[in-house]
Design a protein around this nucleic acid. Structure first.
Lengths: 348, 348
DNA sequence: CTGAAAGCGCTTACAG
DNA sequence: CTGAAAGCGCTTACAG
């Protein structure tokens, strides 16, 4: 039963033709090279019979293209990235690309290693939601002439192709909704590391909304929650606020993990939502829909993000291969949607 | 800036040595081939300077090993598989293996295609949670002499390596808990397709518990919920039960997606949990922990499943490569844990 | 219409 | 201690 893998030459030999011919036919270039229909038939038939599978390594080695792309996110078990990865994989396979998914765990060192590995594997391109503060790694990718597109997170100072969501708008809309409901003391929770663009932008949107209102902005109500210790630090913050009688009436949480921890703390401290505290969260995960009360949240169009990201990357890859000048930057910004539920009460 | 990728020969040339030597040194075989320390130093140094990255395709082509494994699951955005994929990826990268993750969507045709692709990519092995009813595809994988291990789902009639959870035990324990709380009419929901081993086994555990008790088993209370139409079909079932005054007092749900739909239906129909209906679910996902009331559930040791799966696969791969007789079958069965929360009430 | 040949970049007997 | 050579399986100019 130990049958050796069949190769091009096996087919060529049995048919009494050359490898060249077989290769052409199997790659659909039979017609354009004027191979007779009859011969083409024989090739296809035998390939089928022998269950021929082209060796992708040989092929990749020869044509310098792996048909593989890499996706780097912080943690694929976070529902947001899980969904994103799912759709990215869909669009990749639709385009005959394989996907290698990697988790950085918000660890710069790890992310650098991942990039090195991906580069060694000669991926054709990388879709990356980066945790690294500077842009050395992007430089490195570019030096190896591999294409990449940023997704979810960007660098304002480093021009790149990207696909993101309008975080400023989404956060502003959410905060404005809170203001409309009469809230005056509105806090904002972001997650560490603080340099990540999504967190910076969502804070900015929050601030814009307040600055545009009759309320005045107070940095006191913006807290960066360390991701290693979310529950405890949120607990301490709420306790302090409570002790000092400066409890906000609403919180805009810029990250789904933070919100989860916040909900646990509220439960523990018996802070009723929304009667004592109104909450809006960025991201719309299952828990928010099922929570009691259901949590009002900012929905990101995850499927579109994924689709655009793959689409953009493939465009960049083909332009690069064709050695076209790529003076145009693909920068896609998608809209969010505020999903009204029951975690926000009127305040007066 | 367009610098050509550096190859072994580039290094060899600049150093005035052969490719052979460079290859040996870089692969850590310098000592065993008696290459002088000094020479080794020079090789390492230059490789570093030139930022040399071995071409994996050339390497794989030559040694016939890709250092890549495939993971096939139904849907990576399902939290259970998301977590599993995350851990599998962790253990793979710890062992210098790359991971290609694929989604079958419970579609046999799609899964067959995925397997073909993976085989073409010459993965070294496959970890598979299969949706296919027969075992043709496993035969196909074996014919290409690639190693595989089943995970989560198995075939009782087809001997394979596998890593699973003791579904019968987990389901029986859950149902017995329900019986202990005084429930007599206990229903069981499984998800389609009905042939999947997890669903078969969980139903079996449920049935065992009832058979072992003083109650008598009634197939009337076992429903297979079609996955395309979960909400509607559960709604209809509960409505019928209710209309006919045969509502069970507890439901054991063998799948997390089913449970989610069930919770929605209960909310819609204003069936109070647990006072009107007690619920236990297989799988422990975030929603269950945050739900009001928190849902009692059967926790699977996802990290161990992933770890064992990778470990087993790598063992099988190395034995196969070494052409050792593989008469031993690796079959790992892990224990579940019943997490007691508040979705089950006493009944009398 | 078709084929011989080169070459992608590596590793590994083999030879000295 | 070190190197020349073969070969993994493919694709692609080039030649006729």
């Amino acid at each position: 039963m130990k049958h050796k893998k069949v190769s091009l030459s096996d087919i060529a030999e049995k048919l009494g033709v050359s490898k060249t011919l077989v290769s052409m036919v199997l790659n659909g270039k039979g017609d354009e090279n004027g191979i007779s229909k009859a011969t083409q038939e024989r090739v296809f038939k035998l390939a089928q019979e022998l269950n021929y599978k082209p060796n992708q390594f040989a092929r990749s080695l020869r044509i310098g293209k792996s048909n593989t792309i890499g996706l780097i996110v912080s943690d694929i078990s976070n529902p947001f990235y899980a969904k994103m990865a799912r759709y990215v994989e869909d669009y990749c396979s639709q385009n005959q690309y394989n996907l290698i998914i990697c988790n950085s765990d918000e660890n710069s060192t790890k992310e650098h290693k991942i990039i090195d590995t991906l580069l060694e594997k000669q991926v054709d391109g990388i879709i990356i939601s980066s945790t690294i503060e500077d842009t050395e790694h992007l430089q490195k990718i570019q030096n190896e002439q591999v294409s990449y597109v940023l997704v979810d997170r960007i660098y304002s100072s480093y021009p790149s192709h990207y696909v993101v969501v309008d975080n400023v708008f989404g956060a502003r809309e959410a905060t404005q909704y809170l203001l409309e409901q009469g809230h005056k003391r509105i806090a904002c929770f972001t997650i560490s590391p603080a340099h990540i663009s999504t967190q910076v932008e969502r804070f900015l949107g929050y601030k814009q909304a307040i600055d545009l209102s009759t309320e005045s902005f107070d940095d006191f109500y913006h807290k960066v929650i360390p991701r290693e210790n979310m529950y405890k630090s949120i607990y301490n913050i709420l306790r302090d606020w409570s002790n000092n009688k400066v409890m906000p009436t609403a919180i805009f949480s810029a990250n789904n993990q933070i919100t989860l921890a916040l909900l646990e703390v509220c439960k523990e401290m018996k802070i009723l939502i929304p009667s004592k505290l109104s909450i809006i969260s960025f991201d719309d995960i299952d828990v928010f829909r099922f929570y009691n009360p259901p949590i009002t949240s900012v929905l990101q169009p995850i499927e579109s993000i994924a689709q655009k990201a793959v689409e953009t990357l493939l465009k960049v890859i083909s332009k690069t291969k064709a050695n076209e000048e790529l003076n145009e930057l693909y920068q896609v910004k998608l809209q969010t949607n505020l999903i009204l539920r029951e975690s926000v009460a009127k305040y007066n």
